[in-house]
Lab assay of single mutants.
Amino acid sequence: KELVSALYDYQEKSPREVTMKKGDILTLLNSTNKDWWKVEVNGRQGFVPAAYVKKL
């Protein structure tokens, strides 16, 4: 599985998104959309802005 690192804090703005803190390591589930990537963090799945994470 592919991992990404959070470059910035992000506070979810809808139920489809997830909150992350800078430095968090997230499991990348889907990166086909260039703007929003689906990740899993702390057992929750949702979307984060692609520009806020980088692949490890």
Rank of each mutant, 00 (worst) to 15 (best):
A51G: 13
K21H: 11
K34A: 13
N30A: 09
D35I: 14
N33W: 07
P15D: 14
S31Y: 08
E40W: 06
N33S: 10
E12A: 15
Y52E: 02
L28Q: 00
D35C: 14
L56N: 07
V41W: 07
N42R: 10
A51P: 08
G23F: 05
L3V: 09
A6Y: 01
W37V: 07
K1R: 14
K54Y: 12
W36L: 04
Q11R: 12
W36R: 03
E17I: 04
V48K: 00
W36P: 00
A6R: 00
P49D: 02
K22H: 06
L29R: 03
V48R: 00
K21I: 09
G46V: 04
R44K: 13
E17C: 08
V39A: 01
K55R: 14
G43T: 05
K13P: 04
L56M: 11
R16F: 14
K13F: 05
P49S: 02
L26F: 07
Y52C: 15
E17Y: 06
T19D: 04
K22F: 07
Q45S: 12
T27I: 15
V39P: 00
G46H: 02
D9K: 03
Y52S: 12
S14Y: 07
K38D: 04
N30P: 03
A50S: 13
A50R: 09
Q11F: 14
K13Y: 05
I25G: 02
P15W: 12
R44D: 04
D35W: 15
K21E: 06
L28G: 00
E12Q: 14
D24V: 05
Y8C: 15
F47G: 01
P15K: 11
E40A: 08
F47T: 03
E17M: 05
G23N: 07
E40L: 07
E17L: 05
E2S: 12
A50E: 03
Q11W: 13
W37D: 01
S31Q: 11
D35M: 13
Y10V: 01
L3D: 04
K38G: 06
S5M: 15
K34C: 11
K1G: 12
K54V: 15
D35S: 11
R44A: 07
L28V: 08
K54I: 14
A50H: 03
V39T: 00
Q45C: 12
R44C: 07
R16T: 13
V48A: 03
L56I: 14
